[in-house]
Write a protein that binds this DNA or RNA. Structure first.
Lengths: 238, 238
DNA sequence: AGTTGTTTGAAACTTCTGTTTGACGAGTAT
DNA sequence: ATACTCGTCAAACAGAAGTTTCAAACAACT
């Protein structure tokens, strides 16, 4: 009835889970664009070509649908295959691979990257879904990167030093996700484009490698810190 | 009537703009905590001890109140007095002053800093208020910092190089604002405390200075770029 | 004291939105 | 064929929230 010109089978009910999938896809878009609160079931269902009752029927409610979206969105985009790389690959190469993957994921996936957008909102206004996101998505990357950073800076320093090195790298990348609206309004050239992407990656890699070098020198100047290993806490003085 | 034990003069209407100020104060808190959409006029008015009609009477509506809050929130917190520093102060000192000011503002102003919180939301979900925020708040800092960075890297490079240097610095600071919920969930030591604040500032300063050094070396290796000046656009290849 | 403009308060209004309901159609097993 | 289940749909329901209304209170001025 919604499309009088279409035959009735367009609303074929028994294409296993068709509307359910359509709802998840539509919800991913709408939640990413508007956020949980601003997103309306009616808009999601309209985009999915489904009835407003479909969300409650298939998921139980708006919040449950959101949880499904957050879980599903992890598997969108390029997978972090470079995390398989180990010590057989030079640390600088691993660093560059991670930066390229992360930056590409955050800035070059079309107008809005659902994962990045939803993550951004989760950070400003966390929901219970954030905890799963951290354990299944952020922490693996963080520990992998810390190994790389530890190799690049050199051994014998405190855990908090390596943690700061990791954050200095990540921050330069996620910056372009979190501050994109500002950068785009600041003028052309602030936000990376396809043409400037590689130069941007190079800059972050070089800047970080130089930063690690400086950290090693500073650590040497201040004297090596004993007992650096053996603590799970990256910071010892608080 | 809301406070039966207080005398009636507590609702004294003609303390010039009393309710208006109370509304702005309350709205700042509520908007920062909940965001524009989640914040309700009723909660703001209850916190301000005012009637729900007060917002529409004094401001015209919810959105206008939000605009007032965004404008007013710029003047909260420590003012950026260091922006007065010029070439008579070593560039490294100016850099450190800016980093210390910004980081202190973003991470050490109690549980929630209204400015940072609202800014964070504006970046994820911009409203018309963001444009004013950029022109009156971000851009002055950006141009000031670019002068410092230009001095630290050295002359003769492209505008986009200096812009990237600026962003590498800023990103390391705002990271702690935008990713605070994640860092706090990652474990102790990731998010700066009063005890680790100075060490954090030192790290960002040293890391950045070393990064600038690397940028200068890389530029020298690739050869100096002519015609770097004279363009307002920090990026030339897009 | 009376008038006037301003501010406040309680209630109602309107719209939006998540959810529920009951009916209908299609496939499937008995 | 009948009954049952599943999915869909239009409509209605219920609550929340922004806004409006109108009367009352107050201060300042005449």
């Amino acid at each position: 009835m919604r499309f009088p010109d279409a035959n009735k089978s367009e609303a074929a009910p028994h294409i296993a889970g068709a509307t359910r999938e359509a709802l998840i896809a539509a919800a991913t878009t709408v939640f990413a664009e508007r956020g949980f609160q601003d997103a309306t079931i009616r808009e999601i269902c309209q985009l999915a070509g489904a009835n407003v009752a479909a969300v409650n029927y298939h998921f139980g409610g708006k919040e449950d649908l959101y949880s499904e979206v957050v879980v599903a969105v992890k598997h969108t985009g390029a997978p972090p295959v470079h995390l398989q790389m180990g010590a057989e690959v030079p640390a600088a190469v691993r660093l560059e691979a991670h930066i390229r993957w992360l930056l590409g994921r955050l800035v070059c996936m079309g107008p809005v990257d659902p994962l990045g957008q939803i993550m951004g909102r989760e950070m400003i206004q966390p929901t219970p879904a954030l905890d799963r996101l951290i354990e299944e998505f952020f922490r693996p990357q963080s520990v992998w990167l810390e190994v790389v950073v530890r190799e690049l800076i050199g051994p014998g320093l405190g855990d908090e030093v390596y943690a700061r090195g990791v954050m200095s790298v990540i921050s330069q990348v996620v910056f372009y996700k979190h501050c994109r609206p500002v950068l785009e309004r600041m003028g052309p050239g602030y936000f990376p484009t396809a043409a400037t992407f590689e130069a941007q990656v190079r800059h972050i890699v070089d800047f970080s490698l130089a930063g690690f070098h400086g950290m090693r020198l500073a650590a040497a100047a201040n004297g090596p810190k004993p007992g650096a290993e053996g603590s799970d806490c990256p910071s010892r003085n608080h």
